[in-house]
Simulated scan of single mutants.
Amino acid sequence: MRPGGRNLFLLVASALLLILPPAYLLVAERRSAASGPVEILVDYLKAAYARDFRQAYRLISSEDRRLKDEKTYVRERGTFDGFTLEVGNKLAGWIQATPIEEKTIGERAHIKLKLKLPDANKLSGPLLDWDEERLNALSTKEQRALLQKLDQWSMEGRIPVIEGEQDFDLVKESGGWRLFLNWAAGIRLSFEARVNDALPLEVSWDQREFISRQDELFNVRLRIKNLSNREVFMKSLHRVEPKDMTEYLDLVECGLLLPTKLLPREEQEYSSTYLVRGDLPDGTKQIAVTYEFTNVP
């Protein structure tokens, strides 16, 4: 697996094709501007679950999109492609969601869904630990066999599921209903690196500043280059400021948790996945994270 591979089981997105009461039965087709908020919500969740974040971005409100362009949004989350995306869509076909609350006032809508979806984490074993490179490298015969196995498990009721409820807000624009994520009220996070003088390293960030909502995953990528003609053995510590915010920023996945070795002149890319916890104290606006690199004797 690539460092910090994009694991589907890390998703917090809820659904792709939702199985709803008759009034809400939907097909996977392009929505018109006249589509209602539930239909647009389904399309957004479908794209998000499948990690098709380019499509998901198009269904986000213009107010949010002014704060974050498509390239940034996609880069923060990582997008599945190829057969891995097909597997995600396969699982999504078995998701169930029922609207348990729907309030529409003028150009604003609030929808609460009861969700039941495949637990992709528990399926990670037969799905090659969601290693995108390995999944996409399977032969056509192997891919077909894997999809057939999932179909069989579904018919036998062997697909593990997780259940929960989630609220969503939407706004009506000229192009139709769009998800309102309220990024303006999000937490601003910044990242920097400090390298011990004894280490001949060059550290560069793919992106250093983020705006994230609570309970929303985002990815941080950095490249580290050994500038010397000798092997380097290093480790990194993550410092969070203010310090009392450390417990509210979860490090979900990190390619630098263990000491790392770089060969002479070698350059490697690493990825970390973070989540700002939902119980973050009110009024928190900014968190700074520093990666401190030190030599391992």
Rank of each mutant, 00 (worst) to 15 (best):
D206P: 08
S174W: 14
Y248C: 05
S271M: 04
E133M: 08
Q55S: 15
K46M: 15
L280M: 08
A184I: 01
Y73C: 00
A137W: 05
L113I: 00
W177L: 03
W153F: 04
L45A: 13
G176W: 03
Q286D: 14
I95V: 13
K90T: 07
F210H: 01
G283A: 07
Y44C: 15
K68P: 12
I162K: 06
R221Q: 02
E156P: 06
L41Q: 00
V232F: 12
L18W: 09
N182M: 02
S14K: 13
L45C: 14
E192I: 06
P37I: 00
L41F: 00
D52Y: 01
Q96F: 14
V87A: 04
M234P: 13
L237N: 09
G278T: 01
L258F: 12
L10F: 12
D250G: 06
F168A: 04
L280Y: 07
L127K: 04
E202W: 10
G175S: 10
S174Y: 13
D206G: 07
F293M: 02
L10V: 06
P3C: 04
Q286W: 09
N229K: 09
M234I: 12
F218D: 00
A288K: 08
R208L: 14
K235W: 15
R194V: 06
D244C: 06
F293V: 02
W183D: 04
P3L: 03
N121H: 15
E76W: 05
R188L: 12
L45P: 13
A288N: 09
K112H: 15
F233G: 10
D69R: 01
A34Y: 11
T140P: 14
S271F: 02
E29W: 11
N182E: 02
E247S: 07
L257G: 09
I105A: 11
L256K: 02
G82Y: 02
G157Q: 03
L18H: 08
I224K: 03
L275E: 13
K261N: 13
G78V: 02
L45Y: 10
A288W: 10
R158S: 11
K71T: 10
E292T: 05
D131M: 08
L59Y: 05
L170N: 01
L256V: 05
P21D: 01
L45S: 13
E101W: 07
V240T: 02
F293R: 02
N196L: 11
P99T: 00
R2Y: 09
N295I: 10
P160R: 05
N121Q: 15
L138A: 02
R31L: 15
T72H: 04
R221D: 01
K90M: 09
D43W: 14
F191G: 01
N136D: 03
V203I: 06
L249P: 05
S14R: 12
K114S: 15
K141H: 11
G186V: 00
A198N: 12
F168Q: 04
R54V: 10
D279A: 03
L67I: 00
G157T: 04
L113Y: 00
D131A: 08
T246E: 13
E39K: 07
A92C: 12
Q166W: 15
E76A: 06
A92M: 09
E102N: 12
E86G: 06
R239K: 06
R178S: 15
L117Y: 11
G36H: 05
P259K: 00
L45V: 11
G125R: 11
N7I: 09
L135H: 03
R66E: 05
F233M: 14
